[in-house]
Nucleic acid binder design. Sequence first.
DNA 1: ACATAAATGCAACATTATTACATTTAGATT
DNA 2: AATCTAAATGTAATAATGTTGCATTTATGT
Lengths: 149, 149
Amino acid sequence: MAQTKNFRFEELLDKHHLKKTGARLRVLSMMYSKNTATSQPDLESVMSDIDRVTLYRILNVFEEKGIIHKVFDLNGTANYAVCHSDCGENHHHDEHLHFNCTNCKNVYCLDDLHMPRLTLPDGFKAESFTLYASGLCPKCSKKSNVMAN
Amino acid sequence: MAQTKNFRFEELLDKHHLKKTGARLRVLSMMYSKNTATSQPDLESVMSDIDRVTLYRILNVFEEKGIIHKVFDLNGTANYAVCHSDCGENHHHDEHLHFNCTNCKNVYCLDDLHMPRLTLPDGFKAESFTLYASGLCPKCSKKSNVMAN
DNA sequence: ACATAAATGCAACATTATTACATTTAGATT
DNA sequence: AATCTAAATGTAATAATGTTGCATTTATGT
């Protein structure tokens, strides 16, 4: 199964004409194993044996290729999450809700919630929308209910 | 009139029990003179005679007091804009649309456009929402129409 | 005018990100 | 299987952004 998954990632890299290197497979594996986005600092500490510059480069190509997308949390920290649908080269569709938990700091991509189309003031031509929310995620809101405080 | 405005800023500082210093008045004056948010780099270069640390501290207190709010643009750069309405101490209401022009990089706070309330998946307790859009602002979309490309 | 808390300046440091260049490696070619 | 080469990685240096501690200055209440 780990093998099955790896195979899937290798196909993904192939599809984008990227070489299958250990670093790239590990980054993919980590991001696909979570249902939240991963912050740059987290990635860096978990992948501490991979050179920082290499990590930046991996994240950048993945973003260019539409494999992942970058989202800044409430503190301006870069977070990365896999693209669930049809993101292509330099063409992202992450118009879903990004939920930033104020307690655990996790960023959730809630794909089901799409942007309601809005009418902008005269002259503004919107190309894309992103929606942020902050508050407590299911885990943390549960905890805070039970444990009071 | 410059005097009138300054007087207004002095009142504002008074109201929040902040000392009226030259640096603070200049920051206020700059931010109130624009209809877009101001990026940290811009502030820093325009106010280059004010120490960087002082500038950070000014922006931080202003934000704490609810005089301005911080918004990150598409590149993760901090931008600051005056709070239109009733923001108080650590209690911001910037649930309007932040429009980031991909051409001139300006960030517009479109106060009229408020968040449509959304129903979140089970367990998520949202405390605040922020909405981002990117595209061309009126000035830039006009230019690109006229001059083609 | 004076006392003092607040504000600023300065130095040092931490984190995040980029660039240039040398080295290694994946994968194609023979 | 050996070899070749563009792609990927590592290393070092630098830039940009943000924070902390401490000494000095200043706004303002008395």
